[in-house]
Simulated scan of single mutants.
Amino acid sequence: MSFEVPVVDIAPYVTGVGDRSATAAAMDAACRTVGFVQVVGHGVPRTASDGLAAAMDAFFGLPAHAKAAVRTPPEVNRGYSPPKSESLSLSLGVASATRMNDFFEAFNVGASQETYPGSPGLPLPDYAPNTWPDVPGFQDAVDTWFGEAARVARTLTRVFADALDLPADFFDAITGHSLDVLRMNNYALPPGTVDLDGELTGMGEHTDYGIVTVLWADQVPGLQVLGADGGWHDVSPVDGALLVNLGDVTARLTNERWTSTLHRVKPPVVDGTIRRRRSAAFFHDGDVDAVISVLPSCVGPGEEPRYLPVTVGEHVAAKLRGSRAGVVNTAAERDAARVLAARG
């Protein structure tokens, strides 16, 4: 069975020119069948992605002690994560991932209490302040990309609303103070940092937690997506595209009419070294206090809701306790079963 990530042009929603209904239909088809989309027509300037890449190179090129200085506790989804400090498979409750084994390193920034002055009393650590490294130009470049990715994510929710025949402002009601996080990942670690023998885990199998993820990535092999055939398939962005995938919140809303697709990173090892690969994922997760229930319009005749109502905050916290603190998520049986079936 062939596997392909569809390309969807969202320019009609960005520029106001073009056939929005065709874009919405193409998005619906992609989300029903794959859950990953190559998005073009997004309007993000090349200078923004170039600036982000340069900022990432500058930070990840720092000595280990300098990066460690901006590390935060596991419950605070900000700052630096060193290699082998996380295991994404535990976010799905896959107990066979018994140790923190994902060898990527990362740096996170996110929406803080100050981001939403009209929503006082937002809880910590969900809306924690950011911790910035002392790298010239880093914050400006990252803030620029954060703003562009946030714009694309919110544009995509308008596409989603049309594709699902929902009111145009449906997602506005659950994203007024969205838990938005940008995670910058680096896989090009110095020689000797990781053991290249045996099964190499770049980033373990996982689904994303929220509404939608906007991903910038190198055109380097490594990202793999679980297809409907039960096999893992390589995915790399086409020229000028951003990779977009759905998260668990959207799968819950749609009763899995739309797919929160399992994915992982298995970077190639060439001549005993890890080939250089970088990525930056912007997670648009929704309001911490938003209650997510299956949409009645997504429950067909004779069907039942597959999920009980849950707040975005409760769901995201359970996933993060797995990936960042090593606490197996016991509320992800459906996804864990998919992982174990794929492994088999």
Rank of each mutant, 00 (worst) to 15 (best):
G344F: 01
E148G: 12
G198V: 02
N130R: 09
M27S: 12
S293K: 07
A141L: 00
D234I: 04
V294K: 08
P237H: 07
D172N: 06
T311D: 06
A280Y: 04
A341F: 00
S323I: 03
V194N: 10
V312N: 00
T144Y: 04
G202P: 10
L253I: 06
Q38Y: 00
A29K: 08
T131E: 11
E256M: 08
R32T: 13
G51W: 04
D335N: 15
P268R: 12
R78D: 08
N186C: 13
D50G: 15
A317S: 12
V294E: 05
W216H: 14
A30R: 03
N185K: 08
A66F: 06
T33A: 15
Y187N: 10
V238L: 09
G227F: 03
S81N: 13
N245P: 08
A325T: 02
A106C: 12
A153K: 01
V288T: 08
V159I: 07
V265H: 02
L262R: 07
G147H: 02
A26G: 11
R334T: 13
S297F: 10
E4C: 15
G110W: 01
E314G: 00
V312T: 05
P83W: 04
R277W: 00
P63S: 06
G79H: 09
P125S: 13
A150I: 01
Y13T: 06
F160E: 00
G121F: 02
R264V: 03
W132K: 05
D9Q: 11
H263G: 11
A64G: 04
V7E: 15
P190A: 14
N186Q: 13
V181A: 09
T47I: 14
K319T: 09
A280D: 10
Q224Y: 05
V159W: 11
H233V: 06
L124N: 06
P296G: 07
R278M: 12
S260P: 03
P117M: 12
G302Q: 06
N186P: 05
A24W: 06
V270F: 01
S2V: 12
G300N: 09
A149I: 00
K319Q: 14
S297A: 15
G35H: 03
L253S: 07
S81K: 15
D165A: 14
S119I: 02
R275T: 14
D165E: 10
A95E: 12
W145L: 13
E114P: 01
S119F: 09
V225T: 09
A58W: 03
G147P: 08
V109D: 00
Y209G: 15
S178I: 02
T23N: 09
L243Q: 00
F3W: 07
S112R: 02
G147F: 03
G121L: 06
P268W: 03
P305H: 11
T201M: 06
R275F: 03
E256V: 03
V5S: 08
L308I: 02
